[in-house]
Write a protein that binds this DNA or RNA. Sequence first.
DNA 1: ACTTGCTCTGACCGATCGGTCAGTGTCTGA
DNA 2: TCAGACACTGACCGATCGGTCAGAGCAAGT
Lengths: 199, 199
Amino acid sequence: MLERMIRRTPRTHGEILAAAARRFAVTGYKGTSLQDIAREVGCSKAAVLYHFAGKEALLAELMAGPIAVLRELDERISALTGTAAQRVAAEGFVDLAVRFRGEIALLRGEFPELLAQPAFAHIQRISERLIEAMTGPDGGQDARVAALVLLAGIAEGCGAFADIPDEELRPALLAIAQRVLVTPAPPPPRPPLDHQHQD
Amino acid sequence: MLERMIRRTPRTHGEILAAAARRFAVTGYKGTSLQDIAREVGCSKAAVLYHFAGKEALLAELMAGPIAVLRELDERISALTGTAAQRVAAEGFVDLAVRFRGEIALLRGEFPELLAQPAFAHIQRISERLIEAMTGPDGGQDARVAALVLLAGIAEGCGAFADIPDEELRPALLAIAQRVLVTPAPPPPRPPLDHQHQD
DNA sequence: ACTTGCTCTGACCGATCGGTCAGTGTCTGA
DNA sequence: TCAGACACTGACCGATCGGTCAGAGCAAGT
């Protein structure tokens, strides 16, 4: 009887996931309804719920990649201290941001609330440790401000650089990180000629 | 007869506005319902709608201050070019961010969608011009990335510094801006010793 | 031909959203 | 004393949200 929406090729898991990512990136997580995603795919809302346990499950699967890398980075940093931790944190986060900029962009600044959800609770703690590491051995207020501005700027901004290939964006962000992070005062007696040294 | 919620002191315009700002700052604009605001004030949702035309009107009034300053900054910049525009843009935006960090924080990264609303359409254009000015005379890709990361970092991060007084936060952010923004290569004939030139 | 299992549908659920409305208590000036 | 403005209420509206459900269509196995 009702043949208007006949299924010729079944929708795949990944097809829906990609559509969700596209919508989330445009209208944010909260701002995207399951109806929107279904419309993008060309199926019913119920079909989306058939493939995924719920809206949260969609987001969780979308973020699984970057979250795994973030945890890995956290573990690597926790074994370090001082400038070593600072450098690894900055480089690691830049790498992560460049590689997963699509995923990060789709959160759009809804971090605070999304992180409040129990499913992402540990991310909150990791990003705090990341900022602490980026703050560096200096530990002063200026260093803390610099670390947070850098982290937020990269996280929030990297989604806007869709037109820049990875191999160009990464060094650009790394250069910014080197400039912005407060490194401890030059320890050896040395004329502070310029601001660009340290590997 | 129904005296359970007797009004002893009428709610003022400002009282509701302040409550809305508090809630928006915690749960974001979309994430805050009129019910939430009413609960914070201690009145009914209808009372909130009595004082304000709608949810949008609340946000508009809350953002009127920073928007006015932003427009003023835009006008000041439009009369300048090159490094002068770059410096004024950076300093002006830092001032704005410090002064209105509460208001900026409550947008929480919902900028993209909120700016899409016609009421804030001009803000979109202004921030684009601000980035262009911050990019500076260099105009290269790296300069553009630096400008956007700085802008996003300050906008997104300044809300997190509620514990730092204005007179400390301002110089800290200005120092970051000076470090991050790509200034034109030293103009006089000079050996290009390091890697910071490119047009 | 019949069964089984997968994919997907429209209809429907309760909750919540922004917003409207008729009416009610309180204060104030005439 | 009373009329009117003001501040505010609970009830209610249609829309939309995330999510559930019984069953239809279809392909493959037997």
